[in-house]
Simulated scan of single mutants.
Amino acid sequence: MDTLKDIKPLVDIADHSFTYLLVLLFVVLLMALLAGYFGWKKFQLKRRNDKKRKALNLLKNLDFNDSKLTAYTFSRYANVLVNDNNAVDFEKINTALLAYKYKEKVAQLEPDLIKKIKDFLHV
């Protein structure tokens, strides 16, 4: 048994595989989050454009003979189309349309108001 004394103790070997796994998992998770974010942004942009397109189609097909329906429809759907350039025009038209809302019987829309609405919609 004296000849077995040359067996050496165990040596620690540096193993970084767990660290590599965590880094790889972090990178994959980060890429998945970025892909999800950009997909969500694209979906939101498409949805917003669909909303604008729908509102514009409804507003272009307004029936100016029914002044009350025109006033409510314009007020509801023109909000989607408002930007910095036409916000003042929208407020003026919306204020003028208040006379055609909230009453049981209303008169026909004035021709200059119809022209303002059509100019706002670029019809």
Rank of each mutant, 00 (worst) to 15 (best):
G36H: 04
F74G: 02
K54F: 11
K118N: 02
L62Q: 00
L24Y: 13
L59E: 01
D63T: 00
N85A: 08
Y37I: 07
H16G: 10
E91N: 07
L98G: 13
E104R: 13
Q44G: 05
D112A: 15
I13G: 03
D119P: 04
T70A: 03
Y77H: 06
V27Q: 14
Y72T: 11
F43K: 12
L97F: 13
K5C: 08
D119Y: 11
L121Y: 01
T70F: 01
H16R: 12
F74H: 02
L81R: 00
K116T: 04
G36N: 04
K116W: 09
K54S: 14
E91H: 11
L21T: 15
A55I: 00
V106R: 06
A55M: 02
G39E: 06
T19W: 05
M1G: 07
K54V: 12
R48C: 09
F64Y: 03
N65S: 08
E110H: 07
L59Y: 00
Y102D: 15
K105S: 10
V80Y: 09
L30I: 12
K51C: 08
L33M: 15
T95V: 11
L25G: 08
L33P: 11
K60L: 03
L121A: 01
D2P: 12
T73S: 07
D84R: 02
I13M: 04
K42G: 03
N65T: 06
L34W: 15
A55Y: 00
D63H: 00
F18H: 12
M1L: 08
A32S: 08
A55E: 02
Y77R: 01
R47W: 11
W40G: 04
V80T: 04
N49Y: 06
L81G: 03
K46M: 11
V11S: 05
L34N: 05
K103C: 11
D2G: 12
D63V: 00
D66Y: 00
A14K: 15
